[in-house]
Nucleic acid binder design. Structure first.
Length: 460
RNA sequence: GUGGAUGUAGCUCAGUUGGUUAGAGCGCCAGUUUGUGGCACUGGAGGUCGGGGGUUCGACCCCCCUCAUUCACCCCA
């Protein structure tokens, strides 16, 4: 049979992994720089923990795990006959693969509330699974890198997210655009329009504005049953172009009748006040009232990050996040506000690959390869090899006394920057010949200076 | 769940209105060089043309089915 892997999953070659690890290291070190603590949760959760947290669509995209053993034994006869999958699933599956890291985090916080010092800052870098249909930049298994602060509603946390994003993407040399909105503004809008109960429909439609245009957005709202009066009221807003100040001024006007809406604008203005006093190097940020985001649990700020480089073909978001005021409530711990961001490592990887942003050094693992000159000379090489490894230099020796051509070609292929030759001549003189594979130049180094040569100089 | 595209060598792809033995570039292996990789030259290995059925004297090419991949919609990292 032909071997294969499930749709939307991937193998990562050593070359891929070196790059991915570089990326993860960058993100992880930023997280730690900002005081976030590491956390991991199981790949699978009880299905009841996940269901209903991501909206109706989200439920469908959760990978369910079949119960062990004769899983149909306890299944209801009638539901089986009716092919009633929705009800049946509750009887044949009690576990599911995690869909994101935020809900498991909320579950963790509730379970461990008595041992946590709040506000709790945690980061979590783990894969998540979604039963989506794969396409460009969309995988069924992918890594999220989350940083969340829970246990405070201070808007300084939102500001910190901006700083964190800037910190990470500065390291990666990628310019990004941060789109920010606030759910309170969106619900205020629906309220003012007299369509409070249709908020989701309205926001989902508005979210498509830049993709399908004003007319189509209105059409979609009409088909969802939004009143003509409301649509007309929204019209100037959808067509609005202007500065941040003009935008908020217009918003204030529109949302004058909604307490929630006013609050949302207030939050935006406070965040902007803070942000303006900071300096950022790799992010631009703007208020985008068409940003909605699907995840149900967001209640305040929502944000999305896109690559801001004309060369990239990547239009989809590479980070997303926001504030959730009561995610722990459903697990029995109300009044616990949190805010967080999720970096989509796989998409960031794709963008960086496309823009050639991975430094060549990221692909280097072994720094020096020892040539194998045969039995006579191997012991000497082994000693030098051991000395280098003890000094913390990644080093290896070619296992066979193959032709030099082959050994050098191997080093070349592996992108190993240095080849060490320690044959009979070097052994007698207590030296080693180091060849720089990039420049082709060679240098004879005394054994006693070998480790220092790699650790103290700026050699590669 | 809905719609579109593509499946030919390890990879990227040619392949004429259907006509003998299916090609190229890159990669791979060997040699030119038994203490020196990349470059060059020489030689070599490697393909049930995704699978099944049909039309035809004859199918990589036309038709049907199927599988796989991919892009878009929905939604999202």
């Amino acid at each position: 049979m032909k071997p294969s892997i499930p749709k939307g999953t991937r193998d990562f070659s050593p070359e891929d992994m070196l790059k991915r690890n570089y990326l993860f290291d960058c993100i992880r070190s930023s997280f730690r720089r900002f005081g976030f603590l590491p956390l991991e949760t199981p790949s699978m959760e009880n299905i009841s923990t996940l269901m209903g947290k991501y909206g109706e669509e989200g439920d469908k995209l959760i990978f369910k795990i079949l119960n062990s053993g004769d899983y149909l034994e306890k299944a209801d006869e009638k539901w089986l006959q009716d092919k009633d999958s929705k009800n049946l699933i509750t009887q044949i599956s009690e576990k599911a693969l995690r869909y994101d890291l935020t809900v498991p985090f909320a579950r963790y916080v509730v379970m461990h509330q008595h041992e946590i010092a709040f506000p709790f800052r945690r980061y979590q870098i783990q894969p998540v699974w979604r039963a989506d249909r794969p396409q460009k930049g969309r995988y069924r298994e992918f890594y999220q890198c989350d940083a969340d602060v829970i246990g405070t509603d201070s808007l300084l946390c939102e500001l910190e997210l901006l700083q964190l994003i800037d910190d990470v993407f500065s390291k990666l040399s990628l310019k990004v655009l941060v789109l920010i909105n606030n759910r309170k503004i969106l619900s205020g809008m629906a309220e003012v329009l007299g369509e409070a109960e249709r908020m989701t429909d309205i926001t989902v439609a508005i979210d498509k504005l830049d993709k399908i245009g004003v007319e189509k957005v209105m059409e979609e709202m009409r088909t969802k049953g939004v009143s003509e009066a409301a649509i007309a009221q929204l019209d100037p807003f959808l067509r609005f172009r202007g500065s941040h100040e003009e935008k908020t001024a217009l918003l204030k006007e529109l949302l004058a009748g909604s307490e929630t809406g006013q609050k949302g604008i207030g939050e935006v203005e406070e965040l902007w006040k803070y942000a303006r006093s900071m300096s950022f190097s790799h992010i631009r940020y703007e208020l985008d009232i068409t940003l909605a985001r699907g995840l149900n649990y967001y209640t305040g700020a929502i944000l999305e990050v896109k690559a801001d480089d004309p060369r990239t073909t990547f239009a989809s978001s590479i980070c997303g996040g926001g504030r959730y005021d009561d995610l722990t409530g459903i697990f029995g711990l109300p009044g616990m506000s949190g805010v967080g961001i999720s970096f989509g490592a796989d998409r960031i990887c794709d963008v960086m690959e496309e823009l050639n942003l991975f430094p060549a050094a990221a692909a280097v693992s072994t720094r020096v390869l020892f040539v194998n000159f045969g039995e006579e000379d191997v012991p000497y090489s082994l000693q030098l090899l051991q000395e280098l490894r003890k000094a913390g230099v990644n080093a290896e020796m070619y296992p066979d006394a193959a032709k030099l051509k082959k050994q050098f070609a191997y080093a070349d292929d592996r992108k190993i920057p240095f080849v060490a030759m320690a044959g009979s001549e070097e052994r007698k003189s207590g030296t080693v010949m180091l060849k720089n594979m990039q420049s082709g130049s060679q240098e004879q180094v005394g054994r006693e200076n070998l480790a220092a040569w790699f650790t103290t100089t700026q050699q590669n």
